[in-house]
Amino acid sequence: MIKKATIFDIKRFAVHDGDGIRTTIFFKGCPLRCVWCHNPEGLTQKTDICFFEHKCILCGECARVCEKSAHKLQTNIHIFDKNACVLCASCEEACPNDSIKIYGKEVTVDELLPILLEDKDFFESSGGGVTLSGGECLVQADFCRELLSELKKNGISTAVDTSGFVSREKLNAVMPFTDIFLYDLKAYSEDVHIKCTGQSNKIILENLKYIDATGKPTEIRIPYVPEYNDGEIEALAEFISSLKHVTRVKILPYHNYASGKYAALGIENTLPCRLPTDEEIRAAEDIMLSHGIKVYER
Protein backbone atom coordinates (compact mmCIF):
# COMPACT_ATOMS: atom_id res chain seq x y z
CA MET A 1 0.00 0.00 0.00
CA ILE A 2 1.22 3.49 -0.79
CA LYS A 3 2.08 5.35 2.38
CA LYS A 4 0.32 8.61 3.00
CA ALA A 5 0.85 11.36 5.52
CA THR A 6 -1.21 14.30 6.67
CA ILE A 7 0.54 17.63 6.41
CA PHE A 8 -0.67 21.17 6.95
CA ASP A 9 1.84 23.32 5.15
CA ILE A 10 4.90 23.40 2.96
CA LYS A 11 7.02 26.45 3.42
CA ARG A 12 9.71 27.34 0.91
CA PHE A 13 12.56 29.74 1.64
CA ALA A 14 12.43 28.69 5.29
CA VAL A 15 15.54 30.22 6.79
CA HIS A 16 15.07 29.48 10.46
CA ASP A 17 14.56 25.72 10.39
CA GLY A 18 18.18 24.65 10.17
CA ASP A 19 21.09 25.83 8.04
CA GLY A 20 20.70 27.73 4.79
CA ILE A 21 17.65 28.01 2.60
CA ARG A 22 15.23 25.16 3.24
CA THR A 23 11.82 23.84 2.41
CA THR A 24 9.94 22.81 5.54
CA ILE A 25 7.04 20.37 5.61
CA PHE A 26 4.67 20.65 8.52
CA PHE A 27 3.21 17.28 9.54
CA LYS A 28 -0.09 17.23 11.32
CA GLY A 29 -0.63 15.70 14.73
CA CYS A 30 1.25 16.09 18.01
CA PRO A 31 1.27 14.07 21.24
CA LEU A 32 2.14 17.10 23.37
CA ARG A 33 -0.16 19.94 24.34
CA CYS A 34 2.20 22.81 25.02
CA VAL A 35 0.22 25.70 26.40
CA TRP A 36 2.11 28.15 24.19
CA CYS A 37 1.73 26.18 20.95
CA HIS A 38 2.13 28.56 17.99
CA ASN A 39 0.92 26.06 15.40
CA PRO A 40 -2.35 24.86 16.93
CA GLU A 41 -3.53 23.84 13.46
CA GLY A 42 -0.95 21.05 13.72
CA LEU A 43 -2.17 19.55 16.97
CA THR A 44 -4.61 16.97 15.69
CA GLN A 45 -4.03 14.64 12.81
CA LYS A 46 -7.50 15.14 11.45
CA THR A 47 -8.25 17.84 8.93
CA ASP A 48 -9.28 21.20 10.40
CA ILE A 49 -11.04 24.11 8.83
CA CYS A 50 -10.18 27.63 9.89
CA PHE A 51 -12.24 30.72 9.28
CA PHE A 52 -10.26 33.94 9.68
CA GLU A 53 -12.99 36.43 10.41
CA HIS A 54 -10.73 39.47 10.12
CA LYS A 55 -9.95 38.62 6.51
CA CYS A 56 -13.55 38.04 5.41
CA ILE A 57 -14.80 40.66 2.95
CA LEU A 58 -18.42 39.40 3.18
CA CYS A 59 -18.61 38.64 -0.53
CA GLY A 60 -20.76 35.56 -0.01
CA GLU A 61 -18.91 33.32 -2.47
CA CYS A 62 -18.51 30.62 0.19
CA ALA A 63 -22.23 30.57 1.02
CA ARG A 64 -22.94 30.25 -2.70
CA VAL A 65 -20.80 27.15 -3.18
CA CYS A 66 -21.42 25.39 0.16
CA GLU A 67 -23.80 22.46 -0.25
CA LYS A 68 -24.26 22.03 3.51
CA SER A 69 -25.17 25.65 4.21
CA ALA A 70 -22.35 25.89 6.72
CA HIS A 71 -21.69 29.49 5.70
CA LYS A 72 -24.42 32.03 6.27
CA LEU A 73 -24.15 35.69 5.46
CA GLN A 74 -26.29 38.24 7.15
CA THR A 75 -25.89 41.98 7.09
CA ASN A 76 -22.27 42.63 7.98
CA ILE A 77 -21.78 39.24 9.56
CA HIS A 78 -20.58 35.88 8.39
CA ILE A 79 -21.70 32.92 10.47
CA PHE A 80 -19.80 29.69 10.03
CA ASP A 81 -21.32 26.51 11.41
CA LYS A 82 -18.35 24.22 11.81
CA ASN A 83 -20.53 21.24 12.76
CA ALA A 84 -22.32 21.37 9.44
CA CYS A 85 -19.04 21.44 7.52
CA VAL A 86 -17.92 18.25 5.74
CA LEU A 87 -14.53 19.66 4.74
CA CYS A 88 -15.26 19.51 1.03
CA ALA A 89 -12.93 22.51 0.50
CA SER A 90 -15.15 24.21 -2.05
CA CYS A 91 -15.42 27.34 0.11
CA GLU A 92 -11.66 27.49 0.50
CA GLU A 93 -11.33 27.49 -3.25
CA ALA A 94 -14.09 30.03 -3.73
CA CYS A 95 -12.91 32.52 -1.13
CA PRO A 96 -11.17 35.41 -2.90
CA ASN A 97 -9.39 36.58 0.20
CA ASP A 98 -8.01 33.39 1.74
CA SER A 99 -10.15 33.82 4.82
CA ILE A 100 -11.02 30.13 4.88
CA LYS A 101 -8.23 27.64 5.21
CA ILE A 102 -8.29 23.89 5.42
CA TYR A 103 -5.42 22.48 7.39
CA GLY A 104 -4.64 18.88 6.63
CA LYS A 105 -3.96 17.27 3.32
CA GLU A 106 -3.04 13.69 2.57
CA VAL A 107 0.07 13.35 0.49
CA THR A 108 2.28 10.56 -0.82
CA VAL A 109 6.06 10.59 -1.07
CA ASP A 110 5.76 10.66 -4.85
CA GLU A 111 3.66 13.79 -4.64
CA LEU A 112 5.93 15.54 -2.18
CA LEU A 113 9.28 14.69 -3.67
CA PRO A 114 9.11 16.80 -6.84
CA ILE A 115 7.97 19.78 -4.80
CA LEU A 116 10.85 19.35 -2.37
CA LEU A 117 13.38 19.00 -5.18
CA GLU A 118 12.29 22.23 -6.89
CA ASP A 119 14.59 24.37 -4.81
CA LYS A 120 17.58 22.05 -4.96
CA ASP A 121 19.79 24.75 -6.49
CA PHE A 122 19.02 27.04 -3.58
CA PHE A 123 19.75 24.29 -1.06
CA GLU A 124 23.09 23.61 -2.68
CA SER A 125 24.25 27.20 -2.83
CA SER A 126 23.20 27.91 0.76
CA GLY A 127 23.99 24.65 2.53
CA GLY A 128 20.28 24.17 3.11
CA GLY A 129 17.88 21.34 2.47
CA VAL A 130 14.58 19.93 3.64
CA THR A 131 13.24 20.07 7.19
CA LEU A 132 10.47 17.85 8.51
CA SER A 133 8.53 19.66 11.18
CA GLY A 134 5.05 19.85 12.62
CA GLY A 135 3.13 19.15 14.80
CA GLU A 136 5.32 16.21 15.56
CA CYS A 137 6.51 14.73 12.30
CA LEU A 138 7.66 11.49 13.91
CA VAL A 139 4.09 10.56 14.76
CA GLN A 140 4.12 9.59 11.08
CA ALA A 141 7.63 8.12 11.26
CA ASP A 142 7.18 5.40 8.64
CA PHE A 143 6.28 7.98 6.08
CA CYS A 144 9.10 10.24 7.22
CA ARG A 145 11.58 7.41 6.84
CA GLU A 146 10.52 6.78 3.28
CA LEU A 147 10.53 10.46 2.40
CA LEU A 148 13.91 11.09 4.02
CA SER A 149 15.44 8.13 2.29
CA GLU A 150 14.22 9.43 -1.08
CA LEU A 151 15.62 12.86 -0.27
CA LYS A 152 19.00 11.37 0.60
CA LYS A 153 18.97 9.43 -2.69
CA ASN A 154 18.58 12.78 -4.37
CA GLY A 155 21.47 14.29 -2.48
CA ILE A 156 19.36 16.56 -0.28
CA SER A 157 20.46 17.52 3.20
CA THR A 158 17.79 16.61 5.77
CA ALA A 159 16.74 17.90 9.15
CA VAL A 160 14.10 16.53 11.49
CA ASP A 161 12.47 18.97 13.88
CA THR A 162 11.11 16.91 16.77
CA SER A 163 9.82 17.24 20.30
CA GLY A 164 11.55 13.95 21.06
CA PHE A 165 8.35 12.61 22.59
CA VAL A 166 8.36 9.53 20.38
CA SER A 167 9.26 5.89 20.74
CA ARG A 168 12.84 4.76 20.26
CA GLU A 169 11.63 2.67 17.37
CA LYS A 170 10.35 5.71 15.51
CA LEU A 171 13.54 7.59 16.15
CA ASN A 172 15.58 4.68 14.84
CA ALA A 173 13.41 4.55 11.76
CA VAL A 174 14.49 8.01 10.58
CA MET A 175 17.97 8.13 12.09
CA PRO A 176 19.91 6.76 9.10
CA PHE A 177 18.44 9.36 6.75
CA THR A 178 18.58 12.38 9.01
CA ASP A 179 21.59 14.69 8.85
CA ILE A 180 20.64 16.77 11.85
CA PHE A 181 17.94 16.83 14.49
CA LEU A 182 16.37 20.10 15.55
CA TYR A 183 15.43 19.02 19.02
CA ASP A 184 13.00 20.89 21.25
CA LEU A 185 13.57 20.98 24.98
CA LYS A 186 10.93 22.59 27.12
CA ALA A 187 11.96 21.76 30.67
CA TYR A 188 14.37 19.63 32.61
CA SER A 189 12.17 19.04 35.67
CA GLU A 190 9.50 16.51 34.99
CA ASP A 191 6.77 18.35 36.92
CA VAL A 192 7.39 21.57 35.00
CA HIS A 193 7.31 19.65 31.76
CA ILE A 194 4.01 18.04 32.65
CA LYS A 195 2.58 21.41 33.60
CA CYS A 196 3.67 22.91 30.29
CA THR A 197 2.96 20.09 27.87
CA GLY A 198 0.76 17.56 29.64
CA GLN A 199 3.42 14.87 29.39
CA SER A 200 6.54 13.67 31.19
CA ASN A 201 9.91 14.49 29.64
CA LYS A 202 11.64 11.25 30.58
CA ILE A 203 11.46 9.81 27.06
CA ILE A 204 12.52 13.13 25.61
CA LEU A 205 15.71 13.43 27.65
CA GLU A 206 16.55 9.77 27.14
CA ASN A 207 16.03 10.03 23.40
CA LEU A 208 18.29 13.05 23.20
CA LYS A 209 21.06 11.26 25.09
CA TYR A 210 20.59 8.33 22.78
CA ILE A 211 20.86 10.44 19.65
CA ASP A 212 23.92 12.16 21.04
CA ALA A 213 25.56 8.85 21.79
CA THR A 214 25.23 7.85 18.14
CA GLY A 215 27.23 10.95 17.19
CA LYS A 216 24.38 12.52 15.21
CA PRO A 217 24.40 16.33 15.50
CA THR A 218 21.52 18.15 17.12
CA GLU A 219 20.46 21.77 17.36
CA ILE A 220 18.57 22.36 20.60
CA ARG A 221 15.63 24.75 20.63
CA ILE A 222 14.22 26.05 23.86
CA PRO A 223 11.03 28.09 23.83
CA TYR A 224 11.33 30.63 26.61
CA VAL A 225 7.96 31.13 28.30
CA PRO A 226 7.87 33.37 31.36
CA GLU A 227 6.17 31.86 34.38
CA TYR A 228 6.24 28.41 32.76
CA ASN A 229 9.75 27.24 31.99
CA ASP A 230 11.86 30.30 32.79
CA GLY A 231 13.24 28.60 35.89
CA GLU A 232 14.55 25.68 33.84
CA ILE A 233 17.35 27.30 31.89
CA GLU A 234 20.17 26.55 34.30
CA ALA A 235 19.23 22.88 34.60
CA LEU A 236 18.81 22.57 30.85
CA ALA A 237 22.19 24.21 30.27
CA GLU A 238 23.81 21.72 32.59
CA PHE A 239 22.13 18.84 30.82
CA ILE A 240 23.05 20.14 27.37
CA SER A 241 26.66 20.67 28.36
CA SER A 242 26.89 16.96 29.12
CA LEU A 243 26.10 16.20 25.46
CA LYS A 244 28.83 15.99 22.84
CA HIS A 245 27.21 16.69 19.50
CA VAL A 246 25.05 19.72 20.07
CA THR A 247 25.82 22.25 17.30
CA ARG A 248 24.16 25.15 19.08
CA VAL A 249 21.20 26.21 21.17
CA LYS A 250 18.45 28.53 20.03
CA ILE A 251 16.44 30.31 22.68
CA LEU A 252 13.06 31.05 21.10
CA PRO A 253 11.21 33.88 22.80
CA TYR A 254 7.57 32.94 23.33
CA HIS A 255 5.09 35.04 21.36
CA ASN A 256 1.31 35.12 21.29
CA TYR A 257 0.90 35.79 17.61
CA ALA A 258 -1.00 32.54 17.16
CA SER A 259 -4.03 33.75 19.07
CA GLY A 260 -5.85 34.43 15.80
CA LYS A 261 -5.43 30.80 14.82
CA TYR A 262 -6.99 29.53 18.05
CA ALA A 263 -10.02 31.69 17.39
CA ALA A 264 -10.20 30.61 13.75
CA LEU A 265 -9.94 26.94 14.72
CA GLY A 266 -12.61 27.42 17.35
CA ILE A 267 -10.49 25.82 20.06
CA GLU A 268 -9.68 27.02 23.55
CA ASN A 269 -6.88 29.55 23.60
CA THR A 270 -4.29 28.33 26.11
CA LEU A 271 -1.66 30.94 25.35
CA PRO A 272 0.09 32.48 28.35
CA CYS A 273 -0.15 36.24 28.73
CA ARG A 274 3.29 37.45 29.58
CA LEU A 275 5.89 37.81 26.85
CA PRO A 276 9.59 37.58 27.62
CA THR A 277 11.68 40.72 27.57
CA ASP A 278 14.87 41.05 25.58
CA GLU A 279 16.82 41.03 28.82
CA GLU A 280 15.33 37.72 29.86
CA ILE A 281 16.25 36.13 26.54
CA ARG A 282 19.76 37.52 26.71
CA ALA A 283 20.13 36.27 30.26
CA ALA A 284 19.04 32.79 29.17
CA GLU A 285 21.55 32.89 26.34
CA ASP A 286 24.24 34.02 28.74
CA ILE A 287 23.53 31.01 30.93
CA MET A 288 24.07 28.77 27.92
CA LEU A 289 27.26 30.59 26.99
CA SER A 290 28.56 30.29 30.55
CA HIS A 291 28.28 26.54 30.15
CA GLY A 292 30.37 26.67 27.03
CA ILE A 293 27.38 26.12 24.76
CA LYS A 294 27.20 27.82 21.38
CA VAL A 295 24.16 30.02 21.03
CA TYR A 296 22.38 30.97 17.84
CA GLU A 297 23.17 34.57 16.90
CA ARG A 298 19.99 36.53 16.55
Binding site: K11, H38, F52, H255, S259, G260
Partner: peptide, 25 residues
Amino acid sequence: PEKYKNLQVRLCGWNVYFCDLEREV
Protein backbone atom coordinates in the same frame (compact mmCIF):
# COMPACT_ATOMS: atom_id res chain seq x y z
CA PRO B 1 -3.45 41.72 1.51
CA GLU B 2 -4.16 39.96 -1.78
CA LYS B 3 -1.05 41.45 -3.29
CA TYR B 4 1.19 40.68 -0.36
CA LYS B 5 0.17 37.10 0.32
CA ASN B 6 3.75 35.88 0.38
CA LEU B 7 5.27 38.48 2.56
CA GLN B 8 6.87 36.60 5.38
CA VAL B 9 7.73 38.04 8.72
CA ARG B 10 9.87 36.50 11.29
CA LEU B 11 8.36 36.40 14.73
CA CYS B 12 11.18 35.54 17.06
CA GLY B 13 12.22 32.09 15.95
CA TRP B 14 9.68 31.48 13.21
CA ASN B 15 8.53 32.83 9.92
CA VAL B 16 4.85 33.42 9.39
CA TYR B 17 2.84 34.97 6.61
CA PHE B 18 2.18 38.56 7.52
CA CYS B 19 -1.33 38.65 6.08
CA ASP B 20 -2.43 35.65 8.12
CA LEU B 21 -1.82 37.52 11.35
CA GLU B 22 -4.52 39.34 13.25
CA ARG B 23 -4.74 43.05 12.74
CA GLU B 24 -3.63 43.79 16.24
CA VAL B 25 -0.54 41.66 15.82
